[in-house]
Nucleic acid binder design. Structure first.
Length: 285
DNA sequence: CGGGGACCCTGCCCGC
DNA sequence: TGCGGGCAGGGTCCCC
């Protein structure tokens, strides 16, 4: 689930509990996720103060007071839960790492499939780390823009869907928002990336930003409820335009063909590079 | 090098 | 009710 907007929401949700707090106790319940966890991670983190939380692509980074940076990725099934006060349900099988702060908050990192990862590196080694060295621009930052994006894709023969999922091209987009952005922009996921015109590339950049920003807003608005209710971050309700809507009427066509029978404009599902793509063959060209 | 497929792991849902 | 198959929002590696 966690794509850029969800990871941003998780990071923002963690800030009140972690920024400026001291990690009083860290419990590590297994020695690996997708990759081995850092040697003696719990001991190395205990007593450290978290100075600042940041996000890069789909990673949350915690800058510590000893020039080290703790960072994690949620993979497909990772979740973070904040527990406060007396409400402390028993640990589940997949609660792998638990952080307790000096103000009494408990943060649980849970990941059933263990496609997530966590690592601890010196701040000077961050950019050269395997996780970050090949990442493309942040889609919501200034370096992701029409001209640069167009230049990056102009020689790519692969389809545009796989291209915007490629973290080296632009960082943080996952399967849902790739489908959503292409739908909103009216571009077929099957188009070769190099076939996009400058105007189309430019518009796709705008729609990617738009889709991500709106999702972050939606996450932010449900975040307060989530933190208070269950403490669980990152999973909020959403109504997608195309994702998961195979066989249903295209909302974009329904708008454009207002008054006509919109049941003929149905969302289809295809496989691209081993993953499902949802799109409307009528309005995505 | 670019591109596509296999793979890592668990849970869930569906059809039989 | 049990079981097998397919599917899931991730990234990495390996081979062509």
């Amino acid at each position: 689930m966690p794509e850029l907007p969800e990871v941003e929401t998780v990071m923002r949700g963690l800030r009140p509990s972690l920024e400026g707090s001291i990690l009083k106790k860290v419990t590590q319940r297994r020695d690996n996720l997708r990759f081995p966890l850092p040697e003696n991670m719990a001991a190395r983190l205990t007593g450290r103060k978290v100075e600042q939380l940041k996000r890069r692509a789909k990673y949350v980074l915690a800058h510590l007071d000893d020039e080290m940076v703790l960072f994690f990725h949620l993979g497909m099934s990772g979740r973070v839960t904040i527990l406060q006060g007396d409400k402390r349900p028993p640990l589940g099988t997949h609660d792998h790492i638990i952080f307790e702060t000096d103000s009494g908050d408990e943060i649980r990192y849970c990941d059933p499939r263990r496609f997530g990862m966590m690592d601890l590196v010196h701040v000077n080694d961050l950019e050269s780390h395997k996780a970050f060295k090949d990442l493309g621009p942040e889609p919501l930052g200034n370096t992701f823009n029409g001209p640069d994006f167009f230049a990056r894709i102009k020689s790519k023969k692969t389809n545009i869907k796989a291209t915007i999922l490629d973290q080296r091209v632009v960082a943080g987009i996952g399967n849902i928002y790739a489908c959503e952005a292409l739908h909103l922009s009216g571009i077929s996921p099957e188009r070769q990336a190099q076939s996009l015109t400058m105007a189309e590339a430019d518009f796709l950049v705008v729609t990617i930003r738009d889709v991500l920003n709106k999702a972050i807003e939606a996450g932010g608005s449900s975040l307060r409820d989530y933190v208070q209710a269950s403490g669980e971050l990152g999973y909020f309700q959403h109504s997608w335009s195309v994702y998961g809507r195979e066989g249903e009427a295209c909302r974009r066509c329904a708008r454009e063909f207002d008054g006509k029978d919109d049941t003929q404009f149905l969302i289809e599902r295809i496989q691209q590079n081993g993953r499902s793509t949802f799109y409307c063959p009528t309005c995505q060209r």
